[in-house]
Design a protein around this nucleic acid. Structure first.
Length: 622
RNA sequence: GCGCGCGUAGCUCAAUUGGAUAGAGCAACGGGCUUCGAACCCGUAGGUUGCAGGUUCGAGUCCUGCCGCGCGCGCCA
């Protein structure tokens, strides 16, 4: 059920909608029908002294009318009829119109919100949302960078799905370039049994392949210039020659692979299978919705690449330069190379084929790339090239939005990109294992308290909850700050469970679950309990709950998941304040108790739903 | 050199997309459990939002110029 299914007699959940209608009518009444399109700019007030909501249209509108904003606000305010929705508005400052909801109206909105939709409106746009996420490189173990590309993409996908959009999660595997061929060649040359291939073999082969192909022409130059001993010079010459041999061998392997050599293709598939086995282990721990059905890697586009080149050539958008084919842009120096001088294709070619596929064949109205910020220039080039050739036009002639979400780097406490002590990339798995261990420790420690509902639980259950807590800590820490910024990875802070953290939200959720469980009442007994919002904390909690739908809608618009985090943190704060001040099971009378239980149930649903769209679990106890 | 991004409390981060007195958490200090879970709540203190101009009723947010840090800069992905 969603908002659009509601009968007209049911008041919509969001008071902002009601206020918008009323203020708009007042604007028309005061100024005339030609102002019917003016946005009343209804916002939740930040400070209770300015009411619950405010209408901020007057200042900008007065400017265009050449009038004093305060006079205009006064005039419109006099024409506002909020009926039994709100008290008569007050004018403040330069022309703010402050609005205070009547308690009954607040309760009615909240009751209208108390269904499966929870105030989240459906987005009727029939176009798909395509999300490029994860970014697995075959034969390479996942590291910290993949954490962000995976969980941010998954969270966005969930949020769009929550609003009813069709989402395509695209795992654009790096499965078709020279690096893969190098590893493949290395494995075959070393006689590794590919049927028992392990991640460690892949890691080793990847490293060896990189090493043996690394030429050192500069070292040779230096050696010659500084008249190094003949021994050293011979050594370097051999290394360079060896590197060239290794590269040639890898290229030959690539050519055979691309030519469809059955044996090589079979081995190549084994490489992918091995890589993906470890990827799915991590994905599974992370509670991310991604499977084989989401794989559409570089190899998928290989047959479409010649056509990309032809299309650009036919459209007169590409030109030859030093034997390469490039697309030039009027506003920047560097062109986009779409075909190498040796006739080979590049990642830009593949990306262009992917844009076309995603818009034309998947009918994507928004194509979102969750890839780290360093590739910003690359995607700008690719998107601009795609637009110039018209590949951003959906089959029904709508202009698709192509957007790169360039997230920042995960830093260590030295403010440098996170590395191990020995300077290696930190594997995702090691990060997750530590988070899980810390989560389990915390839950186990907590369970020693006799009052804790986890007291006496079997160890396997403690471990299950601890895993959810540890993963929540790590994911929430990542999702809760602005994507574009780098952030410092600090496990201690994440698992401290204080402040704006995943476990803090899980705790608030567990509190509601405990109360509801202890009440002994089933849903029927709460369903139509009248909501009595008498205490200040009850009212603030109600206002916080009502903002949920807007918080979700905002993220499908801005593509900033951290706003849902901030919202949930505010809600949990409001709940904890309410919890502190208002006894629920020990309320003075039965009516109050049932009202407060209903509030708890709503909080529980919103937190669980909010965490779910972030890909975070909400255990009933912890 | 050119391009892009980022500078907010001692530390880690927010700021409803241009709105009122810039808010949280940590660290510091003070208060609250014989009552639903204290992983909590309430309070005190902490700021020239890198600097300088500009736009306007109003700027952390937009524009210009500096400073600092990071990233990128044709045939790797």
């Amino acid at each position: 059920m969603n908002a659009t299914d509601q009968t007209p007699s049911t008041p919509a959940a969001d008071p902002v909608e009601h206020l918008r209608v009323a203020v708009r009518q007042a604007i028309v009444a005061a100024l005339g029908t030609e102002y019917a399109d003016v946005d009343p700019v209804i916002r939740a007030s930040q400070n209770p002294q300015f009411g619950d909501f405010q209408a901020n249209f007057a200042m900008a509108l007065a400017k265009s009318l050449g009038r004093k904003p305060r006079d205009l606000a006064t005039e419109v305010a006099a024409a506002i009829d909020f009926g039994d929705l709100a008290d008569p508005p007050e004018i403040a400052g330069p022309g703010f119109i402050n609005i205070r909801l009547k308690p009954d109206a607040l309760a009615r909105c909240l009751e209208a919100m108390d269904d499966d939709a929870l105030g989240v409106t459906a987005d009727p746009d029939p176009h798909a949302v395509v999300i490029d996420l994860c970014g697995v490189k075959v034969a390479k173990e996942l590291h910290v960078g993949h954490l962000r590309a995976t969980i941010i993409g998954d969270a966005l996908a969930r949020i769009f799905e929550r609003r009813g959009r069709l989402v395509h999660r695209e795992n654009h595997l790096g499965d078709w370039g020279l690096p893969i061929a190098m590893v493949l060649h290395e494995l075959r040359a070393s006689g590794t049994n590919l049927d028992t291939l392990q991640l460690a073999d892949l890691n080793r082969a990847y490293r060896d392949a990189q090493l043996s192909a690394r030429a050192d022409p500069r070292g040779l130059e230096t050696a010659l210039r500084t008249h190094a001993g003949p021994h050293r010079i011979i050594e370097l010459r051999e290394q360079n020659a060896g590197a060239q041999d290794a590269l040639d061998a890898a290229k030959a392997t690539l050519v055979r692979l691309q030519g469809g050599d059955p044996e090589l293709v079979r081995d190549w598939q084994k490489l992918i299978d091995c890589t993906m086995r470890s990827v799915y282990e991590a994905i599974d721990l992370l509670n991310v919705d991604l499977g084989p059905e989401n794989n559409r890697g570089e190899s998928f586009y290989r047959d479409r690449l010649p056509d990309v080149i032809d299309a650009f050539a036919r459209a007169g958008l590409a030109e030859e330069d030093d034997g390469a084919l490039v697309v030039r842009f009027p506003d920047r120096e560097r062109p986009l190379v779409i075909r190498k001088s040796d006739g080979g294709f590049l990642y830009a070619t593949t990306d262009l084929a992917a844009v076309r596929y995603r818009v034309h064949e998947l009918n994507g109205g928004r194509v979102i790339y969750v890839v780290d910020a360093r590739q910003r220039d690359h995607f700008r080039d690719v998107f601009d090239a795609a637009r110039r050739i018209g590949w951003d036009q959906t089959p029904d002639h709508r202009t698709a939005e192509l957007v790169h979400i360039g997230f920042g780097t995960v830093l260590g406490d030295d403010k440098r990109p996170l590395k191990t002590r020995s300077g290696r990339n930190v594997t995702l798995r090691s990060l997750l294992d530590e988070a899980i261990e810390r989560g389990i420790d915390a839950v186990r420690e907590r369970a020693t308290d006799e009052r804790a509902p986890t007291h006496g639980l079997p160890d396997a259950e403690i471990a299950r909850i601890g895993r959810a807590v540890g993963i929540a800590a790590i994911k929430y820490a990542d999702l809760s700050n602005d994507l574009v910024r780098d952030y410092v990875f600090d496990m201690d802070r994440m698992v401290a469970f204080e402040g704006n953290t995943g476990p803090y939200l899980q705790y608030a959720h567990a509190r509601t679950a405990r109360i509801l469980g202890d009440s002994g009442l089933d849903d029927d007994a709460i369903d139509d309990a009248p909501l009595l919002l008498r205490e200040p904390t009850e009212k603030l909690l109600a206002l916080a709950l009502l903002r949920y739908g807007q918080a979700v809608a905002q993220v499908t618009d801005s593509l900033e998941p951290h706003r849902v985090c901030t919202y949930l943190y505010d809600l949990a704060n409001a709940f904890n304040a309410f919890y502190q001040q208002c006894p629920v099971l020990k309320a003075d009378d039965d009516e109050t108790m049932r009202s407060r239980l209903r509030l708890c149930r709503l909080v529980r649903r919103v937190i669980a739903d909010g965490l779910n769209i972030l890909g975070i679990e909400a255990p009933d106890r912890m």
